[in-house]
C-alpha cells in the first residue's frame, strides 16, 4: 500500500507530496566472508580466540580473588583491580566474539517486514464494542445506578486508610524548627566527637575561627536526637577587630569585644556555612555559594539565601568562658512558611 492509497484523516498542517519515486531497498553488498571461504574461516578463528580470551579473563578474576586475601589496603587494591580486569575481559570477550560472529558470518541481507497501523481494524473494534455492551447489559452496570454509584463511593474511600496509615511516618512538626538547645549560660565548646572543651574569650584571637556546639549537647544520650540537635545548634565563633563590626545598636550587647557567634546553618537550604575569609569577613556556603557579611550581622551579599544567619548572643561567665545569653531569637536554617509566626 502506498501512502496515497492509505486513507488518513488528513492532518491540518500537512502537505503530502512524494514527487520522486522510492528506489527500493539498496542491493546487498557482498562481504569478504561471503566471497571467500578463507576469510570466513579466518573470521571463525577470530571469534574463537575472543571466546578463548573470555575464558582466560574468568580465570584471572578467580585468581584475583584467591591470590589477594585481605590483609591491608594494597590487597584490596589488587583484588579490585585483577578481579575487575579479569571479569571485564571475560565479558568483553563474549561480547566482541558474538557481535563479530553476527557481523561477519550471519546473513546481512536486510529484510523488510510489513507494519500494521496500531489502530485495530473496524471489525475488531465492532466486536470489542459489542463485548463491552454485552458485559454492560449482563451486569446492569449502566442500568443499576445505585450499585454503580455506591461502587464509585466505595472505590473512592477504600484507599484513604492506606494513606492515613502513613500518618506516623513522622511526628507533628510543632515548634521543633524554632528552637535549639542553646540556653542562657550554656558554654560554647569546641566541636569534637569526644565532647569538646569550653572556650575562653582570651583564646579567640583576631582572625581565629572556632567551630562550636553547645556544652549540653553531650548530655543527650540518644544518637539520633544528638544529631538532630547538633544540626540546628552548630555555631561559628569568630573574633574581628571591634571597629570593623557594623553593629546594630540593639544587638551591640550580643557580641563580646569583637567576638561574634553565628549559626552555621545556611538559611537557604541548610548546608553548613563555614568558609570564613578572615580579611573580608565574608562567610561562604560551599553548597550554593550564598555569601554573608559576618561584620554586618551576616547580611546576604551574594547567592540564593534570603535571611541573614541568625546571631547567637554571647557573654563571658565568671571563669572567663564564653556562654550563650539564650537561644537564638529566630529560627535557624532554611525558611519555611510559618517561620515568622511564634
Amino acid at each position: 500500500m502506498s501512502e496515497v492509497e492509505k486513507v488518513y484523516p488528513a492532518g491540518l498542517a500537512t502537505n503530502i507530496q512524494k514527487p520522486i519515486a522510492d528506489p527500493g531497498i539498496e542491493p546487498h553488498r557482498v562481504r569478504l566472508t561471503d566471497k571467500s571461504e578463507k576469510a570466513a574461516k579466518g573470521a571463525e578463528q577470530q571469534i574463537a580466540v575472543m571466546f578463548g580470551i573470555s575464558i582466560i579473563g574468568a580465570i584471572i578474576a578467580i585468581w584475583g580473588f584467591v591470590a589477594f586475601p585481605i590483609a591491608d589496603l594494597a590487597d584490596t587494591r589488587n583484588n579490585t583491580l585483577w578481579m575487575g580486569i579479569g571479569m571485564g575481559l571475560s565479558l568483553l570477550g563474549i561480547g566482541f566474539g558474538a557481535v563479530h560472529w553476527a557481523k561477519t558470518l550471519m546473513p546481512d541481507h536486510e529484510v523488510s517486514e510489513a507494519r500494521h497501523q496500531a489502530r485495530s481494524n473496524d471489525e475488531s473494534r465492532a466486536k470489542a464494542i459489542e463485548i463491552i455492551k454485552t458485559a454492560d447489559a449482563e451486569s446492569g452496570f449502566t442500568r443499576r445506578k445505585l450499585i454503580r454509584r455506591s461502587l464509585y463511593g466505595a472505590l473512592a474511600f477504600f484507599p484513604i486508610p492506606a494513606l492515613v496509615i502513613f500518618g506516623d511516618l513522622g511526628p507533628q512538626v510543632g515548634d521543633t524548627l524554632k528552637h535549639t538547645i542553646w540556653k542562657k549560660g550554656v558554654r560554647l565548646v569546641r566541636d569534637s566527637a569526644e565532647g569538646g572543651t569550653a572556650i575562653k574569650a582570651s583564646e579567640v584571637t583576631i582572625g581565629s575561627v572556632f567551630h562550636v556546639v553547645p556544652e549540653n549537647l553531650k548530655d543527650i544520650e540518644d544518637h539520633g536526637e544528638k544529631l538532630n540537635q547538633k544540626a540546628k545548634a552548630a555555631v561559628l565563633l569568630v573574633r574581628v577587630e571591634p571597629s570593623d563590626l557594623k553593629e546594630d545598636p540593639a544587638k551591640a550587647s550580643w557580641s563580646y569585644d569583637g567576638i561574634v557567634a553565628y549559626s552555621k546553618i545556611c538559611t537557604h537550604v541548610g548546608c553548613p556555612v563555614a568558609l570564613y575569609e578572615q580579611q573580608t569577613h565574608h562567610l561562604l556556603c560551599p553548597c550554593h555559594q550564598s555569601t554573608f557579611d559576618l561584620a554586618d550581622h551576616c547580611r546576604v551579599i551574594f547567592g540564593p539565601a534570603s535571611r541573614p544567619l541568625p546571631q547567637l548572643a554571647i557573654e563571658v561567665d565568671a571563669e572567663g568562658y564564653l556562654v550563650a545569653q539564650g537561644d537564638f531569637t529566630e529560627p535557624v536554617g532554611p525558611s519555611f512558611w510559618d517561620i515568622r509566626q511564634s
Binding site: 581565629s208 572556632f210 580579611q279 573580608t280
Partner: peptide, 13 residues
C-alpha cells in the same frame, strides 16, 4: 599564621 584570607588556628584552638 592564617595567611591572607585563611583564618588563624592558634594553639588554644
Amino acid at each position: 599564621t592564617g595567611p591572607q584570607n585563611m583564618p588563624v588556628f592558634n594553639d588554644a584552638n
